[in-house]
Computed example of a mutant assay.
Amino acid sequence: MKTIESYIVTINQHMDAIATSAREQSVGLSEVNTAVNQMDQVTQQNAAMVEEANAAGATLANEASRLRGLIGQFQLGASASYQPASQRAAAPVAKAGAKSAPVASPARSMMGKIANAFSAKGSAAVAVSNDSWEEF
């Protein structure tokens, strides 16, 4: 009887270990299930965003095509023709030489003429002095 009792105690201990392991596996599987569900939600959100980006790209392409058509209606002259900026050659920039000198600003002389015109008629306009302007 004592031998049978010891076997029964051993079997009960094994059954408890199996039950404990089953509970731990159940918790682990529940966590895996939660993670898979979250990944599924994120995947669905990404798919929706890809569809939106695709639709926005198609709309942008249509608008660009429509804009190209509208621009094509402008007459640029006989010698001028439309070229994308990427195909145009950059105009060379000349370096300033030793003989280069600053030129009087046409805006400065125009401001003087305008000031004289208003002050000659007795207006309350303030005359602009050429000394107050700085050359850039």
Rank of each mutant, 00 (worst) to 15 (best):
N12V: 11
G97W: 04
E31F: 09
A47L: 13
L60R: 05
R108S: 01
E134I: 02
S21N: 15
A127C: 01
S81E: 04
A104E: 05
P102F: 04
I8H: 08
S100G: 06
A61E: 07
S86I: 03
Y7S: 12
A101V: 12
F118E: 02
M1Y: 09
V128H: 03
G122A: 04
V126H: 00
S129Q: 02
Q73V: 02
Q87K: 04
A117F: 03
M1R: 07
I114P: 00
S21I: 11
A56W: 07
F136C: 02
R68I: 13
A91V: 14
S119G: 02
A115V: 01
M110Y: 03
Q87C: 01
L67K: 03
F136E: 05
A78M: 02
G97A: 06
A124P: 00
V32N: 07
A91M: 04
N62G: 07
A48N: 15
I8V: 10
D16M: 15
N130W: 00
K99I: 05
A48V: 11
I18R: 07
M111A: 07
A90F: 06
N62T: 09
P84N: 05
V27G: 08
L70W: 04
Q41T: 12
T59K: 08
A48W: 14
L67P: 00
I114N: 01
R88T: 02
N46L: 13
A85H: 01
M110V: 07
Y7E: 08
T20L: 13
I4R: 10
S30K: 08
S119W: 00
I4H: 09
Q83Y: 00
Q87P: 01
I8L: 14
G28H: 15
Q73G: 08
V36M: 11
G77R: 10
E5A: 15
N12A: 10
I11L: 15
M111T: 07
V126W: 00
V27M: 13
A53H: 13
F136H: 02
V103D: 01
F74N: 01
A89N: 04
D131Q: 06
G122C: 06
S30W: 11
Y7H: 13
R66V: 03
V103I: 09
V126C: 01
A89K: 05
A56T: 11
A98M: 06
D16F: 13
S100P: 00
R23F: 10
N54F: 14
D40P: 00
A98C: 04
A85M: 03
